[in-house]
Amino acid sequence: MNETGTRWLSPHQQQQWRAIQRGMALVTDHLDRDLVAAEGLSLHEYEVMVRLSEVPDRRLRMSTLADQLVHSRSRLTHTVGRMEAKGLVSRCKADGDGRGVQCVLTDAGFERLAAAAPTHVASVRRRLVDVLDDDQLDALGAAFTRIAAVIQESTTTQPQPALAGPAEGVARG
């Protein structure tokens, strides 16, 4: 620790953090590229359709969908707007609530999802699942399950402190 109380990352921790950050970005970027090239769908659009396909009546409140996808409501609104123009989803008022809006997967959207799923699954296998052995995949899944749970718990139970700037202009994390 220093005088500001910052616990800087050790060189080993810094190396691992950067490997994780780069790996997550590369996997996400290549999954997106593969879908766009083969199916004309972004990964964000695909994930919206997946979430909607998994619930009764293929509909969710926009706020719930944003939370599930870990997207801002603004970002989701733009994505859904593009998808609506393509006929993949529609928006309607939430039943019994004049303020809420639901996103609904259309039949055309469901068909498009079904057609794109084999491409996406093959990409996930090629970019992640088949790169790791079962123990590594289990460890990665368990690690990110734990990370998500801790973050979710901390954001729902306590306000987040303001982040202080890095000391001496060097970010170590």
Rank of each mutant, 00 (worst) to 15 (best):
Q136L: 10
T28Q: 01
E84M: 07
V170S: 04
T106P: 14
Q102M: 14
A19M: 07
D34V: 01
V36W: 11
V124C: 10
D133A: 02
Q136P: 09
L60P: 06
H44C: 05
L113E: 03
R18V: 05
V48F: 12
Q16A: 06
M1L: 15
R91Y: 06
T77E: 03
A85L: 10
L128D: 14
T155I: 12
L105Y: 01
T119P: 13
H120F: 12
F110Y: 13
S154W: 11
T4H: 15
R18D: 05
R22K: 13
R7L: 08
G141M: 08
A19H: 10
V55Y: 03
L105C: 05
Y46E: 09
G23K: 08
T64W: 04
V70W: 03
Q16R: 09
S63D: 14
D134I: 09
V70C: 10
Y46W: 04
D130Y: 09
E153L: 10
H12G: 10
N2A: 05
E168T: 06
D34A: 11
A85K: 07
H30A: 07
V50F: 06
L52S: 05
D138M: 07
A115E: 02
G100T: 05
D135P: 10
L31G: 05
A108C: 08
H30N: 08
F144Y: 14
V89P: 00
D95T: 07
G40S: 06
A171C: 02
D67K: 15
W8A: 04
R172G: 14
R146S: 04
P118W: 00
D34L: 05
D138L: 08
M24L: 14
T79I: 10
R99A: 04
C103T: 13
M49R: 01
W8H: 00
V36S: 07
L113K: 14
V170L: 00
L105N: 02
Q160T: 03
S72I: 02
E39H: 06
L128S: 13
A116K: 09
A38G: 06
V101S: 06
S123F: 08
P56V: 04
A142S: 12
V89K: 14
G165C: 12
E47D: 09
